[in-house]
């Protein structure tokens, strides 16, 4: 799959790139994207797709997979080419690389899963302008070696999918009374349609941020109490 000579790029001692992330074990690069530096819940990036298509769990899975695919391959490509790309035109180059992989993902989805492709509609090509991917390219992949970029891309991709799935689960379970299409509450449950409509998206996201904030404060208070 990866014909790019990873070793030859890695053998030379890394010159210190200004603004490069400090060296860390690969597992940390991966884990950071899921928990401490989650793209949606902590960095607040990629909010548009997180709210727009999160009314069904199946949509969330499809969108998460497509974003993960684009993120992994574009990070790998950008990180491998980081010494070739001139600094002045790096953003344009990043966008073109990302766009290529988005087109591939879009065509694959249209061919193998036309139903999902129709439901997600323009939100698959819109992955191009998802801030997470360009943000990772600019802040991470363009400055470190391919292995670290891959670990980071997988972490951020899974972190995004996780946030998406949490949103989808809340909205589908409350809004339609189903999970992945299975009815959960029997015939007498009246679906709260509000949650699968646009305002429900904003509300679930807001409640999620409030919960995260409350949780963070509580953790901080506990730490302060322990140190006393």
């Amino acid at each position: 799959m990866t014909a790019i000579p990873v070793e030859t790029l890695e053998q030379a001692p890394e010159p210190i790139v200004p603004g490069a992330p400090p060296p860390q074990p690969l597992a940390m690069d991966f884990w950071r994207g899921i928990a401490d530096d989650n793209p949606v819940m902590i960095q607040m990036l990629g909010l548009c797709p997180t709210m727009a298509i999160s009314n069904q769990v199946s949509n969330g899975l499809g969108m998460g997979a497509a974003t993960l695919f684009v993120l992994v391959f574009s990070s790998l490509m950008i990180s491998s080419l980081r010494k070739v790309i001139p600094n002045e035109v790096r953003l344009a180059t990043y966008i073109l690389v990302i766009c290529t992989f988005v087109t591939i993902a879009d065509l694959i989805m249209q061919a193998y899963s036309p139903l999902l492709s129709r439901t997600l509609g323009p939100f698959v090509p819109l992955i191009v302008v998802n801030c997470i991917i360009l943000g990772r390219a600019e802040a991470f992949a363009g400055k470190v070696g391919p292995m670290r970029a891959l670990a980071d891309a997988f972490g951020q991709g899974f972190g995004f999918t996780l946030a998406l799935l949490i949103m989808c689960t809340i909205r589908e379970v409350i809004g339609s009374g189903t999970f992945l299409g299975f009815h959960l509450f029997g015939p007498h449950y009246e679906p709260q349609l509000f949650f699968i409509m646009p305002p429900g998206g904003f509300l679930s996201m807001g409640l999620m941020f409030l919960t995260m904030g409350w949780w963070g404060e509580r953790k901080k208070a506990k730490l302060a109490g322990a140190s006393k």
Partner: peptide, 21 residues
């Protein structure tokens, strides 16, 4: 203080979205 950041803004957006519905 908890709601000073994004949380409250999103809930306001939810109300606006409801109005536009």
């Amino acid at each position: 203080a908890l709601a000073k950041r994004m949380g409250l803004v999103l809930i306001i957006a939810s109300c606006m979205s409801m109005a536009f519905m």
